[in-house]
Design a protein around this nucleic acid. Sequence first.
DNA 1: CATATAAATTCACATATATGTACGTTTATC
DNA 2: GATAAACGTACATATATGTGAATTTATATG
Lengths: 246, 246
Amino acid sequence: MIVRQAANVLEIMEFFAQVKKPATLAEIADHFGWPRSSTFNLLATLSEKGYLYEPRPRAGFYPTPRWLAMARMISEVEPLPQWTHTLIADLSAETGETASIVAPAGVMAVFIDVVESQAAIRYFATIGHRVPIHATASGRALLLQYSQEERDSVYRKIEFKQYGPSTPISIEAVETELRNSIARGYCQSFADYSRDLAGAAIPLPIGDRRLSVVVAGPEFRIGPKVAEVAALIARTVDRLRPKAAA
Amino acid sequence: MIVRQAANVLEIMEFFAQVKKPATLAEIADHFGWPRSSTFNLLATLSEKGYLYEPRPRAGFYPTPRWLAMARMISEVEPLPQWTHTLIADLSAETGETASIVAPAGVMAVFIDVVESQAAIRYFATIGHRVPIHATASGRALLLQYSQEERDSVYRKIEFKQYGPSTPISIEAVETELRNSIARGYCQSFADYSRDLAGAAIPLPIGDRRLSVVVAGPEFRIGPKVAEVAALIARTVDRLRPKAAA
DNA sequence: CATATAAATTCACATATATGTACGTTTATC
DNA sequence: GATAAACGTACATATATGTGAATTTATATG
């Protein structure tokens, strides 16, 4: 079950992150198609808790810097080491595609850092973006770091769907693909989940955290050179990862 | 009316900002006294939207960097000029008290930047903290920047309460205090709202934004030297504010 | 300045939603 | 390795909550 008003809070914030200017009650209500009275209650709640204010009279609401203060406190705990951002920045620059750091979230994989391609046709992903862990290169690079039991426990919760022609639709199919990935030295995906999208990924354990790096883009650009891209990822990790730490 | 689940989202985030480590469903449910089933729905919603993930298996949930990404996008719009932070940092250092930048939010005033005193006994305020606009030094420094009509419109919405012995409990009382503030050259408050708390504030218009600076602390420390403190605020603003801009 | 139009609030009620209860799964204990 | 305790998940139901309509307040227009 989805908690509607919880989702609405996030949508309002995303709205402000997008329009980047104050908005009145009416504007927000119209934008989402919400009743004004409901919008009023939501805005009042956010204001009362100190997350919204009125920068200038009658010009509407805008989030207070409290969001930033809170997000900073949250993120200063085990932040990703600096070199991982350099890693995906370099990868994106060299390949011209979108590169990301990915972490597990149950049966899904979450993008926790992203550097987007500059190409007109590109993989559009943002921090927080989620994809099925079993049907993506990045996800499988995470699964490779699990024990057999942990994987089994994840499998039990997966709803196998045929997202595309090559989606693995059984536990055995996923396990086979994992074995192939080990043999091959990297994980790959050709439209297993998203149409026309291909990617190469490798595991990226940091401390006791299980992460992965992925480079992804349109099938026609990435397809012919997955192996190259995968090798580049491996080399770049080798170059940037501090030698001392595991 | 307060939208409970909207408030709960904020409380969860504040919880993480405080404990700074992953928490399991059970821990969160117990902490807030929420039923597990409800907590489950909330966490599922936040996860589904990409705001929560599971850093390591079975070690619970933690917010994704998406919060930070969003907060950054929101805050890069008309951020406070750098010098205002220097301003309150200097004021706090020189006075040993808490200094803040404050903005209006209806009948309330919101703290949008804070540098806290280091003293053991101090005014504890955080970004997002809200106080009544008419019953605080910082709030009245905002009201001074309003036209008479704008003030009247605010007055109509105020519920006058006797927060402390000196709280102004009528429109006339507030207007009188404003006139006194103009004559005096700064706004002050002696436990008008919070017990034992005194403060000095002056208006701080920036562009078309109506802000104020306030220095506040325990009555026994601030009380004897409000005038000094107010003068210091004025001098420091003069020193730091760029001459070009109004 | 009066009137019209739009926006913000309030409130009572029907309905969408939070939760008690029960079940399956995982982890801890002996 | 067996048993117990804790944890996570699903669902039906009573109730807390969102909302449509009415009221008040603010802004635009003739």
